[in-house]
Structure formats: C-alpha cells, structure tokens
Simulated assay, not measured.
Amino acid sequence: MSQCQIDHSIEDVKKKFESQSDFLPEEVKELFSSFFSVAHSQEKLNEIFHLLKKYDLSSEEEKTVRNEKFLQVLK
C-alpha cells in the first residue's frame, strides 16, 4: 500500500470500519471495540484506515496479509 498524505480522523476510521465490517473476520472485528475506546496516534489511525480501505475488493491473499497486520496493530 502506498503512503497517503491525508491524516484520517477517528471518525474517518469508524466510518470505514462500518462500511467494511461485514467483510472482516470476527477475530479482527472484535478488536475494534477496544481500539475505538482509547486515543491513538495519527500514524496508527492512518495505518488502520488504509488497512480497511477497499478491504472488500482485495484478493484473498491480500486479505490474509491485512488480517495479520490488523492483529499486530490492534492487539
């Protein structure tokens, strides 16, 4: 994924999560409730946003890679 120059707010991340949540595995979705309950750095918000972005259109291989990154970042 390329680096984006836009800083995404927690609201942006929440909206993107809501739009992609039906496509995420349960173990990843469960981690978001605790993620949204605390403050995060801008870098982390941007990273999560871009992992979520177009998740539904990703190949199965790409989804596997993203799921692993979600587990690393969200735990």
Rank of each mutant, 00 (worst) to 15 (best):
S2F: 12
Q3S: 13
Q3Y: 09
Q3R: 13
Q3W: 07
C4R: 10
Q5H: 12
Q5R: 14
I6K: 13
D7F: 03
D7C: 00
D7I: 03
H8Q: 12
H8E: 04
H8A: 08
I10M: 15
E11N: 07
E11I: 05
E11M: 08
D12E: 13
D12P: 05
D12Y: 03
D12F: 05
D12S: 13
V13H: 01
V13L: 05
K14A: 06
K14D: 01
K15C: 10
K16N: 11
K16A: 04
K16T: 06
F17E: 04
F17L: 06
F17Y: 15
F17P: 02
F17D: 07
E18W: 03
E18S: 11
S19T: 08
S19V: 01
S19K: 10
S19C: 10
Q20C: 11
S21Y: 05
D22C: 10
D22G: 15
D22Q: 13
D22I: 09
F23Y: 15
F23K: 13
L24G: 05
E26W: 02
E26C: 04
E26S: 14
E26R: 11
E27R: 10
E27S: 11
E27P: 01
E27Q: 12
E27F: 08
V28I: 08
V28H: 01
V28S: 02
V28P: 01
E30Y: 05
E30Q: 12
E30L: 12
E30A: 14
E30R: 14
L31P: 03
L31E: 09
L31A: 06
L31M: 14
L31N: 06
F32I: 10
S33L: 12
S34K: 15
S34A: 13
F35I: 04
F35N: 04
S37M: 07
S37G: 05
V38L: 05
A39S: 14
H40R: 09
H40V: 01
H40Q: 09
H40C: 01
H40T: 06
S41I: 00
S41F: 00
Q42C: 00
E43Y: 08
K44D: 02
K44P: 02
K44S: 04
K44N: 08
N46T: 05
N46H: 04
N46G: 12
N46W: 00
N46Q: 03
E47T: 13
I48P: 06
I48V: 15
F49P: 00
F49C: 02
L51Q: 09
L51Y: 08
L52I: 09
L52Q: 05
L52H: 03
K53R: 15
K53A: 11
Y55N: 03
Y55W: 07
S58M: 14
S58T: 12
S58L: 15
S58I: 01
S59W: 02
S59A: 05
E61P: 02
